[in-house]
Amino acid sequence: MTVALSCRAGCGACCIAPSISSPIPGMPHGKPAGVRCIQLTEDNRCAIFGRPERPKVCGGLRPEVSMCGGDRQHALGWLGELEAATR
């Protein structure tokens, strides 16, 4: 049985670590890896979650144990390694 994970409150790793090549409101050329998305709020939540202008790549990234691990630092590291491997 697979258990669905929810995003960790206050994490935001998926909005910082990976690059996004598609336009984001306020970031028309996307964002480079390691740069905080302009749509990430102070409490590390997506300000455009569920809205049509949210990039499709963001909606396709789902939390899972291997990516999220036990804490935010694990998620940042894992996503950073994935980014480097896919350049």
Score class of each variant (00 low, 15 high):
residue 22 S to I: 04
residue 80 G to T: 04
residue 42 E to T: 12
residue 87 R to S: 12
residue 19 S to H: 14
residue 62 R to M: 15
residue 29 H to E: 13
residue 87 R to I: 14
residue 14 C to M: 02
residue 11 C to H: 03
residue 8 R to T: 10
residue 42 E to V: 14
residue 62 R to I: 15
residue 36 R to Y: 00
residue 41 T to D: 14
residue 41 T to C: 08
residue 49 F to W: 14
residue 25 P to N: 06
residue 59 G to S: 08
residue 51 R to P: 01
residue 76 L to Y: 01
residue 44 N to T: 05
residue 35 V to M: 06
residue 67 M to K: 15
residue 55 P to F: 05
residue 85 A to Y: 08
residue 80 G to V: 02
residue 4 A to G: 12
residue 71 D to V: 08
residue 6 S to H: 14
residue 53 E to C: 01
residue 45 R to H: 10
residue 61 L to W: 13
residue 43 D to C: 06
residue 24 I to K: 07
residue 40 L to H: 02
residue 86 T to W: 10
residue 47 A to F: 05
residue 53 E to P: 01
residue 58 C to I: 02
residue 56 K to W: 06
residue 62 R to E: 14
residue 66 S to P: 15
residue 63 P to A: 11
residue 50 G to Y: 10
residue 28 P to A: 02
residue 16 I to W: 00
residue 72 R to Q: 09
residue 37 C to T: 08
residue 83 E to I: 09
residue 70 G to L: 12
residue 46 C to M: 09
residue 75 A to F: 02
residue 24 I to A: 04
residue 54 R to M: 09
residue 30 G to C: 00
residue 56 K to A: 13
residue 50 G to P: 09
residue 48 I to Y: 05
residue 17 A to S: 09
residue 58 C to S: 05
residue 2 T to G: 05
residue 59 G to Q: 08
residue 27 M to R: 04
residue 79 L to M: 11
residue 44 N to P: 02
residue 33 A to L: 07
residue 63 P to M: 07
residue 35 V to G: 02
residue 37 C to I: 05
